[in-house]
Deep mutational scan, measured.
Amino acid sequence: QVALSRTQVCGILREELFQGDAFHQSDTHIFIIMGASGDLAKKKIYPTIWWLFRDGLLPENTFIVGYARSRLTVADIRKQSEPFFKATPEEKLKLEDFFARNSYVAGQYDDAASYQRLNSHMNALHLGSQANRLFYLALPPTVYEAVTKNIHESCMSQIGWNRIIVEKPFGRDLQSSDRLSNHISSLFREDQIYRIDHYLGKEMVQNLMVLRFANRIFGPIWNRDNIACVILTFKEPFGTEGRGGYFDEFGIIRDVMQNHLLQMLCLVAMEKPASTNSDDVRDEKVKVLKCISEVQANNVVLGQYVGNPDGEGEATKGYLDDPTVPRGSTTATFAAVVLYVENERWDGVPFILRCGKALNERKAEVRLQFHDVAGDIFHQQCKRNELVIRVQPNEAVYTKMMTKKPGMFFNPEESELDLTYGNRYKNVKLPDAYERLILDVFCGSQMHFVRSDELREAWRIFTPLLHQIELEKPKPIPYIYGSRGPTEADELMKRVGFQYEGTYKWVNPHKL
């Protein structure tokens, strides 16, 4: 086992960053958080920038500027975001240094004079007029057009580079997404736009490419001749908990499936790229999406959770019991969808996408189930092999396979070949997804960000279904809070070829 401390991990990262040409360590950078008073800024962006600063992973002359409508001070920003920093008493001095680099400007999102004030403020910072500028839009999409237009007109660096990070949702359907994309691309070049999907920053999602293309053993079996089906799962054990009003506007397909799960599907299904260059990788992902037809209604199961009468606390409440959810809402909190990649490698292999709230566990994984062994000599005792990439929690890679049961006879039983990170790298604290992705933006690497043509294809696949749901308002199937979801989803999976045995229990190697 390799035991690495946080300091050692960050030392390795620093070495990698400083050796590259793309990370300008000594240049002045300004990180501007648009929507600095909001939840995302408070819980994710400010803490992430602090962790990067604490670990010495930001360029040395980096300033952080918050911008929002609320009249706040840096002290206010500190008060609301610091509880999420997880700072230790030993880091007190470092924390003071961090907040000394912070400033805040209040202004409207659609007022040109406010942006001119913001620009004057940035120019007044040390070497601010020639600094590289990175704008993070932690804002609702309704203000994107006004904000990007004003940034472009008043706040661009004339000497350094300018980059803009856009948070999902990128529209509600193909038409609104196209409108937003066309607007942003009329102001910024594609190499300046970073559409963030934080799932692409997760260690195991990034590991998929290495697993596939750096190991000879997987190449020959990664196709329709050997793989019976692919299941991509995202499960949350909690409901909307008072935030249903926002969720109800989008629903589970827009929230998770059309982005996170579809991105994971691309990494499983794509061909080997010409290189690890950002556009070479994204070219292959677009090719996969172009091979997927629009979702067919007979390959869809929609569910909505109801309270568990035997549960406790939140578990007793259904989705419609959330006071922020519109009365009688038919918005799905669970969806199972089957897609097919219609190309030579994957023809006929079902890709089953499942996601839901208020389920029995927290889990995100990719599961490849292989065909049955031909010419069975073990009297149907063999179960199908599976390769599982567990994204969260407890990152893991393992192969479910058959071995001989101890004893006199040739009785096979299920076991696993474990390729888990935790076994080799004991207690290594890896940077989280937002840390990686923000560092990628500083480096100018777009590999783990969504390109406009990729986004367009993703919406093309799901828009007809979303429009049909909005028009017909089908009643989702009720499922109990804390269950596996509607049984109809299991029946759909069985119908397209997935075999669920229920006889195997994964042993978490992190707890051995």
Score class of each variant (00 low, 15 high):
K357A: 08
V288M: 07
I438Y: 11
L387T: 03
M264C: 09
V428K: 07
C355S: 09
P350W: 00
E488K: 13
T403P: 04
F370H: 01
L437G: 15
D310M: 06
I389W: 15
V300Y: 08
I389Q: 00
S445V: 10
N411S: 07
I480K: 14
G313S: 09
K357N: 12
G348L: 01
K287V: 03
M447Q: 12
A336S: 12
F409N: 14
D418M: 08
V256L: 14
L466N: 13
K285P: 02
V268R: 02
R436K: 09
V507K: 09
N298F: 06
V295P: 10
L368M: 11
K285R: 15
E342A: 07
N508L: 11
T276G: 09
Q296G: 09
E413T: 11
A315C: 12
M270F: 05
T420F: 15
Q392E: 13
Q392V: 12
P393M: 01
Q380K: 12
N394M: 09
R484S: 14
V428S: 15
P326C: 12
E491C: 08
F498V: 15
G485R: 01
F410A: 06
D283K: 05
V268F: 12
R484P: 07
L289F: 05
V256S: 08
P350C: 01
P464R: 07
F410Q: 04
V325F: 03
G444N: 08
F410I: 12
K383I: 12
L417D: 05
A358G: 06
T330N: 07
A335F: 00
D418E: 08
E284N: 03
G502V: 14
G407L: 09
K405R: 13
L439S: 07
D440R: 03
V338T: 07
S415D: 02
S483Q: 04
V286M: 13
Q381L: 09
L302A: 03
W346K: 01
K272I: 11
K511F: 12
K400A: 11
S275F: 08
Y398H: 15
L430D: 11
A364K: 05
T399I: 11
P412G: 13
G311S: 14
S445L: 13
P406R: 09
E294W: 04
Y481I: 09
I377Q: 03
E365W: 00
D347W: 11
L466P: 01
D490G: 09
K290F: 02
V388Q: 07
H510T: 09
N298C: 08
G482Y: 02
S293D: 05
I352C: 03
A335D: 02
L339P: 01
K473S: 11
A458H: 14
L471C: 04
V496Q: 09
N298M: 05
T463D: 13
L455H: 03
Y319G: 00
S293M: 04
L492M: 10
F351L: 02
N394W: 14
R282H: 11
G444A: 12
P509C: 10
P326W: 09
S329Q: 02
Q258F: 12
D453I: 01
F498E: 15
E284T: 04
S293G: 07
K475A: 08
M270H: 03
V338M: 07
D322F: 04
V288D: 01
V337R: 01
N427C: 15
D283C: 09
K290C: 05
R354C: 11
T503Q: 12
P393Y: 01
N411I: 08
L359Y: 00
A274Q: 04
S415C: 05
D376P: 11
M493N: 05
H448M: 15
E488G: 05
K473W: 07
K317I: 08
S329W: 00
F351C: 01
D283H: 04
K505Q: 11
M402E: 05
R390I: 06
N299W: 05
Q468T: 12
